[in-house]
Design a protein around this nucleic acid. Structure first.
Lengths: 213, 213
DNA sequence: TGACAATTAGGTCATCCGACCTAATATTCA
DNA sequence: TGAATATTAGGTCGGATGACCTAATTGTCA
């Protein structure tokens, strides 16, 4: 949603600017995402960039929207591309695991998580993204384990997504590297989530914990 | 490890500066972590701050070291504080879940994850932190499930830590809120990780944990 | 062809940044 | 007491930033 540039050429230019901004964001982080830097990467002048995105916030919003939209589309496409509906989840998880081997694919999200903690508008959009993400997973999970309640299925979907997001930290090269054993155990957990419906073990007793982690 | 200030008062001042820096980091993110800002929050002059930390990087390194050291100590203290050794993991997980309800406790780590993706020195320290973190968890996991191999135990520990880190995203208020159902399912996964050890297809289990298929 | 939008270009402005420096005062302790 | 250390105060410097502005050029379509 850029300010101007409705014509085909304008649209193209707009996309190119967002491409440059995204590359800059991945490479240097959101604090380095300056209008000048983006303009330089895009190979255009500052004034020209400002014709499309008058302020930095406008640029960031457009970039965020594009990134999340793309991620959503990719997830749903992957779900649909499975051999059988039952394998949809496995296929998507497989693809995500593959993505995690590329640092660039997640660096962007690390910045987004940090940003969302402070900028409510970004938090709102990210929240909507993950809600849809988890919803899609829950849908498939419900098909695989029909005896589970709606709430249970949703909880497990959230758990699975959290696991994958957390795992990205240890697989994208910066804090760790992909590990076969871990992948194997992940598959066991994943199948467990979609199959086992036994009653939960007793919850541990409560105890007031100290602050901070 | 500040540059100067070995005397008790200097030590105190040094800690106060790091406190201010940490508050600023949590509130505004690492891009807002300026020497001037820290000095203002600490209620001292810029020159005074520079007496303790000559450069920004020095400050950041000291801050990072203190944060990770504290987190490590807290985790190990929590493990040790359990009623029984067997409950050590549960106790620690409980405490972590409690922490996750406070946004401030994790915001800092979101920034660290983003930073680590670009600054090798930070990545190195964070990696060491998580290695120790996962190692501690693996140790306890090994006690709870002695029939698992060392590698399996380590893989499960990494999985559990990843799950908790990922979960923090959805529990710290910005992208979601704590949810009882999710917690319940987390406990099931957690106990599953510490109890179930039979391979995928065969063999009846004697453990209390849920069974597959 | 002419009008109008799209696009490019270049420059100004106040503001903040980190690094660096010097001088003066206060505190501590041998 | 006197010397070393800790602390405060104020300033300079080059550099980068975002917002804003204006003029010139290109492209499109009636």
């Amino acid at each position: 949603m850029s300010t101007r540039g409705a014509s085909p050429k304008g649209q193209e230019r707009s996309e190119a600017i967002l491409d440059a901004a995204e590359r800059l964001l991945v490479d240097e982080g959101h604090s380095a995402l300056s209008l000048r830097g983006v303009a330089q990467r895009a190979g255009i002048r500052l004034g020209n960039l400002q014709y499309y995105f008058a302020t930095r916030e406008e640029l960031v919003r457009a970039l965020l929207a594009r990134v999340l939209e793309r991620a959503t589309a990719q997830l749903e496409e992957r779900m649909g591309a499975a051999d059988t509906p039952a394998r949809a989840l496995d296929t998507a998880v497989e693809a995500l695991l593959e993505d995690q081997k590329d640092p660039a694919s997640y660096r962007l999200f690390y910045d987004l998580w940090a940003l969302a903690a402070r900028e409510p508008t970004i938090a709102t959009e990210l929240r909507a993204f993950y809600a849809r993400y988890i919803g899609t997973v829950a849908e498939r999970l419900g098909l695989a384990a029909p005896e589970l309640s709606r709430a249970e299925v949703h909880a497990r979907a959230e758990l699975l997504v959290a696991l994958l997001e957390g795992l990205s930290l240890f697989r994208s090269g910066t804090l760790g590297a992909p590990d076969r054993k871990v992948e194997a155990e992940l598959w066991r957990v994943s199948t467990w989530l979609t199959t086992v419906s036994e009653p939960a073990p007793p919850a541990p007793s409560r105890k007031k914990g100290p602050q901070r982690r």
